[in-house]
Nucleic acid binder design. Structure first.
Lengths: 223, 223
DNA sequence: TAGATTGTTAATCGATTAACAATC
DNA sequence: TAGATTGTTAATCGATTAACAATC
């Protein structure tokens, strides 16, 4: 029952469902109702049923949802299993953290190469990956057609690098540069992870919470 | 004209405004209309005026907005300048990337300490910060009352650590663990940066885009 | 069977967009 | 002054919630 256009809000809840289902599965549960799942996630049962019904009839009246099978359905919707390929562009600290510690396999992504311009980084080994010189990027893009570029370059070169990637057929950019990309080809999908934005939002809510409190109370954080 | 409850959507656009204004300012502009700003950001002028009017009358009829002063207002709303304090809990690769390369000052946050349990990490120097043993965390929390904890510990210890932080008066958690926190004290503000969720969303949209294409077309990424 | 819980339709709520009088 | 552009009110659109018949 896959409906035409599915809203971004719905899509962004799917990974959370996945996580929760994994958790419940690990805790030994095999079935779950929209009521219980909703309570666990702070969502209404209605919303969960509405969300899932965008993609199909995964439940069963009187029973609920089978956790393993629902997990499989969502994993499928999120295209885990497509073996999308990715290249890491820029192996500074964040890039390094990703290369070393991020489980791409968990998202069904295959990281095939990493690139940097800095001589001291080129040649470094991460798992089964050796950082290549940025000169080699063009060839890899043209020959292996990776789907995703993980953009971890400096802010200064962010847009230039993005344009280059798009020109060479990259389909999606996972953007860690904290720069708003203005890439020409508009049919490239950009997913931003703007650290600063996120921190500022936290800062806002913290200050909201402290509104009304006196300076003395504020300096005394504790409850 | 600050209205009662401001929606999360509005709040999450503020950092983007800030970034765009900085950019325009750097490019030498001093004023901007909602029309031009909207075009630059892919938003409607209406939405921008609506957003800003939640917080005050920052514009001027017939003129638009003064970039510098609007920037200041937004920075103020986001509480940049409150000198919120933060501690980094867990100095693995992501924690390290933050300690070394993230500009906390840009968000008006002061990083006062970093902690880890691993002996090989304790004592490491980052800028003017020396990683302390996790044993020392409790005392710092109780004595210096930091506002924010940047949670970069392992998934296994995420919730346990979060509970500890909350018990010791932490007001906000910037959560990098990719674990849904279930901290007891519900009046703590949690801002999540779930890498995997973000990547899965990208994966979804990529697969959507490729729907309808043949396998052959798909294997031939290029335009 | 009776109870539970789905998928879906309808109602409500909230967010975005459009329109326009006010005014710089 | 005339033109531009705001802040705000009203209209529209979309997302969430509620209700309920279908059915396991």
């Amino acid at each position: 029952m896959r409906k035409g256009k599915i809203s971004d809000n719905v899509i962004r809840r799917l990974p959370r469902y996945l996580r929760k289902l994994d958790e419940m599965s690990a805790d030994g549960y095999t079935r779950i109702s929209s009521k219980v799942l909703g309570d666990a996630m702070g969502l209404t049962p209605s919303q969960i049923r509405q969300d899932l019904s965008c993609f199909g009839d995964f439940g069963q009246q009187g029973y609920g949802y089978n956790i393993a099978s629902l997990r499989g359905e969502i994993a499928n919707i999120l295209a885990i299993n497509r073996r999308l390929t990715a290249v890491l562009v820029g192996v500074g600290n964040i890039g390094q953290a990703l290369a070393e510690h991020f489980s791409f396999a968990l998202s069904g992504i295959q990281l095939i190469d990493a690139f940097d311009i800095r001589p001291e980084v080129v040649g470094t080994q991460f798992g089964n990956l050796t950082v290549k010189n940025a000169d080699a990027l063009e060839q890899v893009l043209d020959e292996r057609h990776p789907d995703i570029a993980i953009l971890c370059v400096s802010q200064e070169s962010a847009n230039e690098t993005a344009d280059f990637l798009v020109d060479h057929g990259i389909l999606g950019i996972w953007n860690f540069t904290n720069v708003e990309l203005t890439q020409k080809a508009k049919n490239v999908i950009v997913e931003n992870l703007h650290f600063t934005d996120s921190l500022l939002v936290l800062s806002y809510y913290l200050s909201e919470k402290q509104k009304g409190k006196t300076a003395a109370e504020r300096s005394q954080n504790q409850q």
